[in-house]
C-alpha cells in the first residue's frame, strides 16, 4: 500500500467537469493551494465547491479565489464568501450559492463522512437560512430566480431544531502538515479547521502534506488513512 503520488496532477486525474469538491481551509490557513493550482491546470469547469471561504478577490490570487476568478464554479456551498468577484457572479446569475452556517457546514461534512443520514440543529431556526426565502440564484435580469425552501423543523425538548442533510462530495482536497504512505494525516494548529471533515466526507480524498514520513506515530494521527486516497508533497511552501 502506497498512497503517495509524485505530482498533484497525477493525484487529480479523475476529477471531472461538474464534480462536487470539498476543500479545507479557513481564510488563508490550511488551504491546499498546490492541489487547487493543479485542478485549475486540468481546466475542469462547472464545479460544485464546498468550502468555508471564497478567497479575497485579489489579482493573481491562489486558492478558492482562483477557482472563482477563472469561472470554474457553478455552485458554491460556503459560510463566508466575502470575495467581491464571487458576488458579482452571484448577483448576475452565473453562480448559485448555498449559504450554510459555519458549524452546520462542518457538521454536514462530518455527517456525510460518518454515514449519518442527517441531523437536527437549533442553528438558523427562525431565520431565512432555515425558514426559507434566501436567494440561491439570481436570473440574468437581476431578479431572484431560485430561493431556499423551508427546511423540516422539529421541536425537541421544547426547542425548535432544523433538519440538515449530510454532504457527500465526489472529491476532497485537503492540506495536512504531515502524512505517511498509509494516508495517515496530522494537521497544524488552526490549519486543521475543515480539513479532516472534508477528507471524511468525500468519496475520493486527495491530500497535500508539508512533510511525508515513513510512518506517523499512531498517537500523532489526527485523521486515519482509510479516509485518504492519495497524498502528494507540498511543492512550494517550506516545511515548518
Amino acid at each position: 500500500m502506497d498512497k503517495i503520488r509524485p505530482k498533484a496532477a497525477d493525484a487529480l486525474d479523475s476529477v471531472h467537469n461538474g464534480a462536487s469538491i470539498a476543500i479545507g481551509g479557513f481564510g488563508q490557513s490550511g488551504v491546499p493551494l498546490d492541489l487547487i493550482d493543479a485542478l485549475c491546470d486540468r481546466d475542469v469547469r462547472g464545479l460544485h465547491i464546498i468550502a468555508n471561504n471564497g478567497g479575497r478577490g485579489l489579482p493573481g490570487e491562489r486558492g478558492i479565489g482562483r477557482l472563482l476568478a477563472e469561472n470554474r464554479v457553478s455552485r458554491f456551498s460556503c459560510s463566508f464568501p466575502v470575495n467581491p468577484a464571487f458576488f458579482e457572479r452571484y448577483f448576475s446569475g452565473e453562480v448559485e450559492i448555498e449559504l450554510v452556517p459555519q458549524g452546520t457546514l462542518a457538521e454536514r461534512l462530518r455527517a456525510g463522512g460518518s454515514g449519518i443520514g442527517g441531523f437536527y440543529t437549533p442553528t438558523a431556526a427562525g431565520t431565512v437560512l432555515a425558514d426559507g426565502g434566501f436567494v440561491v440564484r439570481y436570473g440574468k435580469n437581476g431578479e431572484p430566480e431560485k430561493t431556499l425552501a423551508q427546511k423540516e423543523r422539529r421541536v425537541i425538548d421544547g426547542r425548535t431544531y432544523v433538519l440538515e442533510s449530510p454532504l457527500r462530495p465526489d472529491f476532497a482536497l485537503v492540506k495536512a502538515h504531515r502524512a505517511d504512505r498509509y494516508g495517515n494525516l496530522r494537521f497544524r494548529l488552526g490549519a486543521r479547521n475543515f480539513n479532516p471533515l472534508a477528507a471524511m466526507a468525500a468519496k475520493t480524498t486527495i491530500a497535500q502534506a508539508d512533510q511525508i514520513a515513513a510512518a506517523l506515530d499512531p498517537d500523532d494521527i489526527h485523521l486515519p488513512g482509510p479516509f485518504v486516497d492519495r497524498v502528494v508533497a507540498t511543492e512550494l511552501e517550506p516545511a515548518r
Binding site: 479557513f26 481564510g27 488563508q28 468555508n52 457546514l105 497544524r188 494548529l189 488552526g190 486543521r192 479547521n193
Partner: peptide, 28 residues
Amino acid sequence: PDPDVTDAGKNPVTLLDGAASFDSSTSF
C-alpha cells in the same frame, strides 16, 4: 505572525498556556 494561528477575522493572534487546536466540527 504564524499564518496558522489566527482569530475569526483571520488576523494573527498568539496561543497562550492551556491553548488547544481542533477541527471545526469539534469547535462548534
